[in-house]
Design a protein around this nucleic acid. Structure first.
Lengths: 382, 382
DNA sequence: CTGAAAGCGCTAACAA
DNA sequence: TTGTTAGCGCTTTCAG
């Protein structure tokens, strides 16, 4: 049952020297005669020696050079882009990623975090599922003096670094885009879970209505799921109502994509009959039949910022730096789904590099097709 | 600089007992008086004790309960779905994932694998970038007696378990679908890298031509990239030629999506002017303007099979089981992009649950909208 | 330039 | 029921 890996001892025995000489020879070789060094090196090569970083860490109380990343799911390219960027950034600093996917399950999330701590990660980047359940896990992390950075979402009351998107303002800018065109009947397809992000975006929606002097209608606010399929049922619910809405603001892009498919499927035209806005700026929103206007969030900026904050903490473990919150701005990508058409004629063309984007009417909504296009261009496949 | 985590010793000191008692009390508590156990447990809780799994592994030569996963990129949902499924499957068996993304870079790939081995992973699941460069890394793994399972791609000559897709036959079935409709001018947009997958699919394309008695035309085989943007330039190259093709078979879905966008952008109609087939059955291929016919591969089956093979190996470390290759069958999802239309009228509707799919003309091409639809339904978002 | 001793956190094996 | 000893693989410290 025992593993039979070659250790320093094995090499030492084979070379008839002490373990120390082998150890020295194998890294740098300072304080070892050249002859011995080459001999040891070759021997290690032959025996397929791989140093055991765990024992190194244990002996020297050094870093494991491993950081834990906890994300809620892999459903669209948002978190996977983040994950990829975190991996890339931390790799250049020699760190590896211990991955955990909570699947929006706070129980698993807690287990995940315990497991990361048991494995002595040097730091954790975490997008928590929901407010309250995560607090226990967060406190556990903090007690270990393990650097923690929240990404995209955070848990209030936990005093640590975080990188979030300007969700509220992003949602508001989307609403302004709609109301500035004179729309007043705007439905909201929201997410069921009660998270940081959920609250912020809903609050942006409400603020948008308030600004435009529009009364809030509870029957136009739907607590849906947040995936493609959820759009389907949400549309069904919406259409049961007598009064027709002019636009739908979706909590996120995949929901918006599902909503679009269902609307089109029912013969409802976009944007002629109803306008559609998503949130995320995920590339999927740009490739559908009617490209969807969306609040773009820069995943790479998010991920890079989080990684850098974590690196700073890990490099200064004793220093008690005040915790910072980095807010990544959003930008509205205006596409066909909210295009005010002169007649019923649809624009014929669009390209990958420049998705049919048009400046929004209000200054609050900065048009930004560029980042989106770039993101799309990078999408690879097997 | 030292980490100040609470250890068994700390608790022992605080409780005025030996470390062993603490150790015993904390797990199970067999052989410890109830009184002491509760006292210790409470103390551990107070001090925020988290066991150090690394030292446990070191002392007992037990498993780290960590497996390494190496994938080439996160560009579309293919590998991310696989990753998610692997995480989920292994989690139920208590394993964690140490993630590495090679970014199609064999150099990084080698570093990644070394790092995994140094961290004493119990096993590795790996989708290698290319044939030759990976061999060194593969041999390193094998020498450590570290269980290795190839997924989606493999390195010839390395004797270990693997799970692959029936790439060649999948490509062939797509070709049969096209040729059975009488098409003879079929271009191939292929990937530049020289990998297992590349070769298999190209070989399926060629076999399809051969079967139908069509002569291979080198000028219709393009060595493109494999992402959305690559479709753009490939289309440009294709259109430079005088003779028009009737269909394009794309190496993968993201390439096909990019190709579609570019074709539509140039006013070329799909499927009227040109038909389009992708490979992967990734959900992105189903949400575009003209849903794309694609060879579906079941990512979950792939991932689950790989995880299970690895688990078997890890549970029987000494047993010299013969290495197995599991081939996951593909199925053709026929969608609008290859729909033979009676006139120039397009079908108006499609839904999420049942993407406009039609049985292919030949038996070789099993229509399979179901798996696709299910996959799409699960797609989530923040 | 080389080696011996001690210890990182934890637990199996043996005392007491 | 409790405690002691030894050792996992490696490195730092101090001797030779």
């Amino acid at each position: 049952m025992k593993k039979q890996k070659t250790t320093l001892r094995d090499i030492a025995k084979a070379a008839n020297v002490s373990m120390m000489s082998v150890s020295r020879a194998l890294r740098g070789g300072v304080g070892v005669s050249g002859e011995l060094r080459t001999r040891i090196t070759r021997l290690a090569e032959e025996l397929g020696y791989v140093p055991n970083r765990l024992s190194y860490e244990l002996g020297q109380q050094k870093n494991t050079m491993t950081v834990g990343v906890v994300i809620p799911h892999f459903g669209n390219s948002f978190f996977t882009s983040i994950l990829q960027q975190i991996e890339a950034t931390l790799f250049t600093h020699g760190y590896r990623i211990l991955l955990a996917c909570s699947f929006n399950n706070p129980i698993k999330e807690f287990h995940d975090i315990s497991a990361l701590l048991e494995r002595q990660v040097d730091g954790i980047i975490w997008a928590p599922v929901v407010y309250d359940e995560g607090r226990r896990a967060a406190e556990l992390i903090m007690r270990q003096n393990c650097p923690l950075v929240f990404i995209d979402r955070k848990i209030p009351g936990i005093n640590t670094d975080s990188v979030v998107v300007d969700d509220r303002h992003g949602a508001l800018s989307a609403m302004r885009h709609l109301t500035s065109m004179g729309l007043r009947k705007i439905a909201y397809f929201g997410a069921r879970l009660d998270s940081y992000v959920t609250q912020e975006r809903r609050s942006g929606y409400l603020a948008g209505l308030r600004e435009a002097g529009i009364e809030v209608r509870g029957d136009w606010m739907f607590r849906t799921g947040n995936d493609m399929i959820a759009g389907q049922s949400a549309v069904a619910q919406l259409l049961e109502q007598k009064e027709k809405v002019e636009a739908i603001f979706c909590f996120n892009d995949m929901l918006a994509v599902g909503t679009e498919l269902e609307l089109l499927n029912r013969g409802i035209r976009i944007p002629e009959d109803i306008m559609l806005v998503g949130f995320g700026g995920v590339f999927e929103s740009g490739i559908v039949r009617v490209p969807i206007t969306s609040v773009h969030q820069d995943e790479n900026a998010l991920a890079t910022a989080a990684a850098e904050l974590l690196l700073t903490r890990m490099n200064n473990p004793t220093m008690k730096l005040p915790s910072v919150e980095r807010v990544i701005p959003t930008s509205l990508i205006v596409r066909e789904s909210t295009l005010r058409l002169p007649s019923a004629v649809k624009p014929a063309s669009r390209s990958i590099a420049t998705p049919a984007a048009k400046p929004a009417a209000k200054p609050a909504a900065k048009p930004a097709a560029k980042p989106k296009a770039k993101a799309a261009a990078k999408k690879k496949s097997r």
